[in-house]
């Protein structure tokens, strides 16, 4: 680092300056320095490769194979027919609804909390968001059924104060209503750091120049936040697209969604010609996921520009 040689923070350069006798040591050190990062990252890399990428690649390959192991496009072609095409259409629609609506609501909520003066409220909501974002699944489904189902407690309460609200939890809209419960907290978790990047001094500067609240948001707030919010929505899209447990518990398979169809494939006997269709659905989901992630990376690059 420094050319003086007396106080060098980098041990490598210091040794190199000593002389011929320590050349071997220099080499060994530099090799060690090159290898150490690989060794240190090895357990994590191997774990992710075996735990995430291996299953992903296996499903993708099996989507193009027959039961006998020959290559085929048959399984993929099936995706564009009947219930499988409907499953993708429903899944994508559901994921769109449950990413845009909770995405916007989540930003409002995160902003309301981030600007709150109570440190305790802010922290409690953060911890609650962590719990609820993880709390999809069957527990949530049953609590919602107890609350908003036929004669559900919340339904009865609301009726007693004159509000008739009886969502059918086992249809498409009902599933969206329940999904909000874990998608909004997930959005709050994702977007809060970006809101922190919105500096109070910018608002003061805008107000000092005579900007109204509206023009501050239109010209400063929204443009700065847009990439982060879009990125968050893409993640919500992925999470809504992937969710299986909640919808399975709510609808018992009556709404055709891609994950539900894979579940049926895994549980049931499959007709001749349909033995590998589950892998094809899986491959289709992986493709949608990869497109989502590429878009996310692209948007994230723009988002982080403002957060430095």
């Amino acid at each position: 680092m420094s050319s003086s040689g007396t106080i060098t923070p980098d041990p490598g350069t210091q040794v190199a300056g000593v002389g011929g006798g320590s050349v071997v040591q220099t080499k060994r050190r530099s090799v060690f320095q090159v290898i150490t990062p690989f060794l240190a990252m090895m357990p994590f890399t191997v774990y992710v490769a075996l735990g995430l990428f291996l299953p992903m690649v296996a499903v993708s390959i099996l989507a193009f194979k027959t039961v006998d192991g020959h290559w085929t496009m048959h399984n993929i072609n099936l995706l564009f027919t009947g219930v499988y095409a409907a499953g993708f259409k429903n899944s994508i629609e559901l994921a769109l609804f449950t990413s845009i609506v909770p995405g916007i609501l989540g930003v409002f909520l995160a902003h309301a909390i981030a600007t709150s003066r109570s440190e305790l409220l802010r922290r409690l909501v953060a911890s609650a968001s962590g719990v609820l974002a993880n709390f999809g699944g069957v527990n949530l489904a049953f609590i919602f059924l107890a609350s908003y189902g036929l004669n559900g407690i919340a339904t009865v309460w609301l009726k007693s104060i004159g509000i008739t609200f009886e969502p059918n939890l086992s249809d498409f809209n009902g599933v969206v209503f329940v999904y909000l419960y874990f998608q909004i907290p997930l959005m709050v978790l994702i977007v809060t750091p970006a809101l922190g990047g919105l500096r109070p001094s910018w608002r003061e500067a805008a107000e000092g120049l005579g900007a109204s609240t509206w023009s501050y948001w239109r010209r400063v707030g929204v443009p700065v936040l847009t990439p982060a919010v879009l990125g968050g929505m893409l993640l919500l899209f992925g999470s809504g697209f992937a969710a299986y447990a909640t919808v399975q518990a709510l609808t018992a398979g009556s709404v055709a969604l891609s994950p539900v169809l894979i579940g049926d494939f895994l549980n049931g006997n499959n007709l001749a010609g349909y033995e590998h269709v589950g892998y094809a659905i899986g491959f289709g989901m992986i493709v949608v996921l990869l497109v989502t992630m590429v878009a996310y990376v692209f948007i994230q690059r723009r988002a982080t520009r403002w957060l430095r």
């Binding site: 895994l266 899986g282 992630m293």
Partner: peptide, 28 residues
């Protein structure tokens, strides 16, 4: 410099469908 990569890799499980994970795991 790896933090960006780590950020991205550790995000994957949020969007990766657990049900597709099972499909692959049971086969491999």
């Amino acid at each position: 410099k790896m933090r960006r990569v780590m950020d991205l890799v550790t995000l994957l499980p949020i969007v990766f469908p657990p049900i597709v994970l099972v499909l692959g795991v049971l086969k491999t």
